[in-house]
Structures are given as structure tokens and as C-alpha cells.
Design a protein around this nucleic acid. Structure first.
Lengths: 210, 210, 210, 210
DNA sequence: CATGAATGAGGATTCATTCAT
DNA sequence: TATGAATGAATCCTCATTCAT
């Protein structure tokens, strides 16, 4: 996350244009995958000349990587803020889920890319700098694991492997949100869906008090 | 699922060769996506000449579609058999999960393709005959929904929208299995994983009796 | 130089087609250099589809390299045969010059490429396998140097650094032949030109007897 | 050669900047040829903006042409001065060779370009104004031819076609000098090399007295 | 049927040139 | 005048598909 404060006008414009290109590209990457997306499409959609893209990115791969990295960074912010704004594991999971849902609603294509990468759903492209993404994902996961452990210590949550639980959460919530958003349907009652997810997930992990 | 009984030797051989090609192809589609997979790879891996593939399929797309359809059919068989072999919703879900896991262990590449298609994770390719897959998926889903409804009527399961619950199950179990299988890790304790999934899912959907 | 005897029809055809492509390409490389030559031109001139070229060469660079290597091999043959067919240094140089001239007359474009490479006149392209060409050039040069030394021992030739003399010969004869052939002029009296070259070169290196 | 005396400061600066650009460009043209050289390289090396180059030249081609023309003019000066400073053909050739060698030592890239053009070693680019260069080359050649004729009349030189002899000289000396300068070697004994060239060339063309 | 050479449409990338600042 | 971002034509290369053998 670049500090955009102390940048020259030129540099700010450059970052802005990079973002414009990424925003135009993400829809295609999400819908068709990396290989099937063409630079012509991206150029057309971003309203830049094809050659211009190369002033901002070294190639198709870098556009893709930049998008995934940006989502990755944003998701880390989301987790951190959810942690800071809550005091209990339960509250954290609820807020985190809500924030995720919200982010996904507004940036569904970015989210698709990220889920695909993290969930190993395709390796259409070998992201050279996957390390950065993977390590950030690990970091985020650890934050969640810590919270889960706290809950287990305080007996709010059932005892279980917190690592596995974290992974399970991720593979429950991410794909489901993705489904809700991509599936063509009339209306989406956000609260209802969140409640359902949490209800299922919680009433399994919350230790019942007699 | 073609009835292979009353076929001539020629026809049986034809089906056998189609299967060989599909088996060779699925690994590439799973690992690299549709677009990034080349017919040269498939020809080489299947030990057929490139031109020969066209005697068995109309093109790359049909190979892909045939694979997805085959998985789709197999999964329908799995659900049906799980239904027939169990008498309660709980038992059904457990057996179904177990069978899924098992199928996935032995056919992980096929499974990846299917999940990608069903979970809308990419539409790299527009499957012309997606209707058949979608409608079978609906059919399967309805079978599950019926079972869930039974459970709600008999008060074994909490009252909830069975459609949503079915979807939730699908988006919990499928991606998680996929993750377990694709994530590079040492050993995989199948039973432990299944128990975890079921534990979380069940203790959320099973109505607690005092 | 591949032994073309024991090859299958397929392999012979393959070599033949490679040669056809090289023959079509060399004219462009010679006239415009490596970078300015396009595959479209080569494809058109060789009467193959553009993609077909890639069945025979890995790319533009390999076509170029293959040509230079072929000339290199041929020139080695020429030197060797000239050595075998003569018994004195003087006769050798005369026959060698005559053979060179003749080769160049019939393969002037190939010759241009070779001279350019050997004379360091351009490094438009970095030939990966330049080593092979350079080492062959060294080998050929040594053969000539040996002959020159013989002449010096037998007092037929003046005493001088045979290495330098060999280089001087090369940079006299090759570029001049090239000039004669590429310069647009009416008629070319081969014998006259050869006699001139030899006259100048010989009457300098032949030791005068009183 | 523009008379730089009566020019305004602006015009002098303009010429100076053109020269700076040409000096930066010639190294690339010499090493990689016309096509493979990019304006970006030239702009970077000359420390001008890419657009600025167009204030001094109409395009890449003109930069190239200007360089070749400048060398061409310089070489004409060299020949003329060598003629004025000597009184015999022999002395002339010796001085000319020496001056050439010296020029080449200090401007080897320029020299490479010129030799390539004059020796027809590549026509990567069609110099629109090649006429000027060719005609100057003819002029220079005639000066040399005249000197050679004088030598033949005065019986200092053997009788021969002076035109051919001039060409032979050019194709002996130029490429050899080029080779000496571009070939990677430790030390270069200028005098030794010149003596060798002249020794070979002279003892062939000088008529022996009994 | 089996094969793989031939093909050309399509895609990523480069770069000379233009032009607004 | 100096600049470098924008551009798209041009180029190399890939690959699904065809077809002669």
C-alpha cells in the first residue's frame, strides 16, 4: 500500500492510471481467466491504446499480479480492522464476515481473482511473486488463528485445531459469497445471508453451555 | 451414462479411446485452465496423434465438455446411491460427504473442473451444452433439498431454507475438499477431515434436543 | 554436414524443406540484415505458411544461424579440398581463391552473411552458437597458416607473421569478392579479377629471387 | 561541412546538439545495425528526451544518414589533405593509410557504419540521399585513381587498371583496419600493422627494378 | 482410422512518431 | 524548446483445426 501523500502530481496520476487499467482488466480476468483475456479487450475497456498499457505495466502478467496483490493487501486491512474493532472472537468473526461480504459486493471481480488464487482453483498463470501473496495470506490466517485460540482458551469456542477451523471458515465463506454474487438472481438479502452463514458456522463452533 | 452392454466391439473401443483422451486431458485442464491447455499436450499425453483426437471429439471444447459432463453424471450417481443406502438425512449427508471425498481422492482433476464450473469460478469457456450440466445439478440439488426437508419435518434438523442450506453445504464441502487435495501437504487423514466438516456442519444444522 | 545417406524419406524431406526455407531467407538477411527481415517475407518467398516455418526452425534466429553454419561448413570443405588438391602454398592460395570466387558467384547471399559475421561487421543478432562458427573459422585459419608456414620454410614466401598474413588475405579477398558480386555492374571477368587479386597478393609475399 | 564561422549562437548550438546526438547514436548503429537500434537508446545515451531528437532530426533515418554523411565528408578531407601533403603516389598511399588508421582508431563506430555502406555489406536501410555519399565516394576514388595513374606514368607503379587497384586497396585496407579495431585483442601495434599492409600492397604494385 | 505437416487467424509485445503540456 | 505519455502499425510467435497420405 503506497503512501499517496508525498507524491508528485505525475506520480499520483501514474498510480491513478494504473488503477484505471486494473479496474478495466479485472472483469475480464474474473470472467474468462488469465489466458483467455486479451490485451485488446483491456485496452478497449480502459480506453487506452494498447501500447499505452506497456507504459504502466510490463505485460499482461503484471496487470494480473498487481490486481491480486492489491486485493490481498485490502483483505489484510479488512482482517486487521475487524480485529481492532472487536473484543471477542465471536464478534470478530461476525464483523469480519460482514466486511468481507461488503467488500465483495463492491469488488466482486477482484474477489473472484483472489479466491481463485488462494483456493488453488487454477494455475493458469504462474505468478512470479506469488510468495508475497502467499506469505500475506499466511499472516492473515495467523491473525485469525490467534483469535480462534483465544476463544478456545476462554471456552467460548469448542476445542479444535484452530488452523483447520480457519481454513474451513475460509472455504465456506469465500466460495459461498462468491456464489451469491455471481449467481444470477433477483435480489440478495445481505443480512439474511450473513446470518445464515454465521448461524451454521457458529452453532457448530460455539461450545454449548448447558 | 451410456449403456455399454449392447455395443459392438468397434463402439466399445471408441468409448474406451474417448475415455483415454479425456483422462489425459483432464490433468491439463485442471492445472492450467481451458485456454492455456494445448492439444499438443493432450495428444502427447494420450499417446495419440494430434489429428486422431478429431476422430473422437469435434475439438478442444468437446473434450472439455465431455469431461465435465462425465463428472456431473458420476456425481449424480453418487448422490443417488447415497440416498438409496441411507434412511435418515444425517446418515445421508455423512455418507454423501464420505463418497464425495473418496471420489475426489481418486479423481481430483475431474473434480477440480467440476467445481470450477459449478461454483462459477471461471467461464473461460462457454460450454454450449451447459444446460445439461446445470439441469443435472439442479436435479441433484433437489434430491438433497428433499432429504433436508424430511429432516426438518421430522425435527431432526433446524428449520431453515433448505435450498440455501444445500447451497451452503456444497460451497463448504466442495472447495474444502479441493483445498485439502490440491494443497501440498504431507499426509491427509481422510477420516479426521470428514469428521471435522461434518462436526461443524451438523452441530449447526442439527436441532439440539435438551 | 549431415550424412544424408541413411535417412528415412521423412527425414530427407525435412532437410530438403529446411534448405528451401534457408534459401528463401538468405536473400533477405543479406540485403536487409537480421532485424529488418520479417518472417512474412521469408514465408512468402519460400511459399510456406508462416506457421510452417516454425515446424522447421524454432524461430527467426535459428533460420539465420542455420544459414551461417551451413556456409561455415561449406567453406571448411572448400579449404580442405583446396589443400588436398595442391602441393605448394602458391598453388593452394590460387586454387582456394578460385574456389571461393566460384562459391561466392553461386551463393553470394550466403557469402555476405558469413563475411558479415566473421568480419565483425555487425552484431545485429547474438548467435547463441557462435562458438561453433568461431571455432571452425579458427580451424580453417590454422590450416591456411600451416600452408603459409611451409612456404616460409621452403623460402617460397617472405618471412612474416603467418597469422597476420592469413587475416590480411581474408580481409582482402572476401570483401573484394563481395564487392565485385554485389556492386551493380555489367560484366564480370572472373579470371581477370582473380589474376589481379593474386598478382597483388603474390608479388608481395613471394620472395624475389635475384 | 558547414561553415561554422558566420552562424548565430542559436545555430551553433543547434549544430552542437546534432553532433551530440549523432555521437550517442553511432555506437548503437555500429553495434546493432540500423533496425535493431531504438530511439529510446539514443535518447537515453544522448541525455535528451525522445521527443527532443525530433527537433534536430526528422527521424531515425536522418540521424543515421547524417552520421554516414559526416564520415564521408571527413574521409574526403583526409584524402585531400594526404594528397596535398605528399608529392609521390607511394608517399600518398602511405600517408593516407596512416591517416585512415588514425581516424579509425578514434572514431571506430563511425568508420564501421561507413564501411558497411560503402562495401555494400548491408542495406538494412535505404538511404534516400545515398546519391550524395556515392558521388562523394566516386570523387574521392577519382583523386586516388589520378595519383595511381601518375605513378604508372612515372613507372613507379606497375601498369594495371587504376580503378580496380583503387577498389582493391579500399577493400583491403578498410576491412582489415576494421577487423583490427573490432577484434578483441590485447594490444595493437599501429605501426607494425600499417607496415604490414603497405608491405604487402606495395611490393605488389611497385615495379621491380632489376 | 491414424497421423502430423501445413496453415493462418489471433495475441502479446515493440517502437518510431506525434503532440499536448 | 524540451519532454515523455499515448498511440497503433508492425512483428514474432502460438495453436486449433484441416487434410493429404
Amino acid at each position: 500500500m503506497v503512501d499517496e501523500k508525498n507524491l508528485s502530481r505525475k506520480e499520483r496520476e501514474r498510480i491513478f492510471r494504473r488503477k484505471e487499467i486494473m479496474d478495466a482488466a479485472v472483469r475480464f480476468f474474473a470472467q474468462k481467466g488469465f489466458s483467455a483475456t486479451t490485451l485488446d479487450e483491456i485496452a478497449l475497456a480502459s480506453e487506452f491504446g494498447k501500447g499505452t498499457l506497456y507504459n504502466y505495466f510490463s505485460g499482461k502478467e503484471e496487470i494480473y499480479t498487481a490486481i491480486v496483490e492489491e486485493v490481498s493487501a485490502t483483505l489484510e486491512e479488512i482482517v486487521k480492522s475487524a480485529i481492532q474493532e472487536t473484543s471477542t472472537p465471536i464478534d470478530f468473526i461476525e464483523l469480519y464476515t460482514r466486511k468481507l461480504f461488503n467488500y465483495c459486493l463492491n469488488n466482486c471481480f477482484d474477489f473472484i481473482l483472489y479466491v481463485r488464487e488462494v483456493a488453488h482453483f487454477t494455475t493458469d498463470i504462474y505468478i512470479t511473486d506469488r510468495n508475497m501473496i502467499v506469505s500475506r495470506h499466511e499472516r492473515v490466517k495467523n491473525l485469525i488463528v490467534e483469535r480462534l485460540k483465544e476463544g478456545m482458551v476462554s471456552k467460548t469456542l469448542k476445542k479444535a485445531d484452530p488452523e483447520k477451523l480457519s481454513t474451513l471458515y475460509e472455504h465456506l465463506v469465500f466460495p459461498y459469497i462468491l456464489f451469491l454474487i455471481t449467481a444470477p438472481q433477483q435480489k440478495l438479502d445481505e443480512d439474511e445471508e450473513i446470518n445464515l452463514i454465521l448461524s451454521v458456522f457458529f452453532n457448530g463452533i460455539i461450545q454449548k453451555t448447558k
